[in-house]
Design a protein around this nucleic acid. Structure first.
Lengths: 136, 136
DNA sequence: TATTGACTCTATAGTAACTACAGAGTTTAA
DNA sequence: TTAAACTCTGTAGTTACTATAGAGTCAATA
């Protein structure tokens, strides 16, 4: 059994984050010392690293909570897990598409002020305003 | 002079968002009615649309505040504006790269549970756990 | 044993950009 | 006058952390 500081070291998560995960019902110490210190066993370490791995894949805490539930459910869980990952992939791909579009817009905007330095009418600010007029 | 509800309609921003922007010092009504209702003029409309446009480019409120300040500064502002947009482009590109990498990882993970439906050992969960072991 | 520094606890608050709701006041139309 | 729509300020919530405060526990050292 280890205390929270050791768990933090082993896992690379901060003490505060671990407490946060407990609050969010992702990982709870099964035991406390006489002094009320949280005590974690090896399964807890693995669980936290699982959570950390999922976080590195940008899965939300809610999604991770679900995965953990499925992980401890009957054998029929595989499709559910697959679906979650699929949905997550779709989200990520959508976000990539959005950002790519945004990047294009920003680059177009940047061209407005390429080499000019005609400070009286900054091309970028002008464009931002002109877009305004078009919106109207 | 128009009230906040009309401004919201014209701009496509919610009443609450407009109030939020006032609190964040992006846009403040210059006048209030006797009944203490905010009153906006045409310049305010344009300012809000400018803000909205910047938001659509994912610029933070802090960044937009800066742009607005530069917009009302002496002629030497063009380079500053350009720099801000450049930095923002870099951020966006970095984010795209991160998400693209993440997408790859997720797709690799998804292959673990491609057609199997061998629910006893879900490939995805297994991978998430195996990655854990590697981390250790 | 006493002391001290490190560790741990709970609680609270903050970050960013909204969004929702509550209760009270104002305005407008019937 | 009445009632509905609008507006106000204030408070709280969302997500995933992060920081701080004040108090308690533990372990090492003198």
């Amino acid at each position: 059994m280890i205390k929270i500081g050791e768990l933090a070291k082993i896992s690379g998560c901060s003490v505060q984050t671990i407490r946060h995960y407990e609050k969010e019902q992702l990982l709870a110490a099964k035991l406390r010392s006489d002094g009320n210190f949280r005590l974690y066993d090896h399964a807890d370490i693995e669980r936290l690293l699982f959570i950390k791995h999922c976080r590195s894949l940008d899965l939300s805490l809610a999604e991770i909570r679900q995965l953990l539930t499925l992980h401890h459910s009957p054998m029929s869980q595989c499709d559910d897990v697959n679906q979650m990952i699929e949905q997550h992939i779709e989200q990520v791909e959508r976000r990539i598409a959005d950002l790519t579009q945004l990047n294009k817009q920003l680059k177009a905007l940047r061209l407005s002020c390429n080499s000019k330095r005609t400070v009286e009418h900054c091309g970028i600010l002008k464009q931002l305003n002109e877009a305004v007029s078009q919106t109207n």
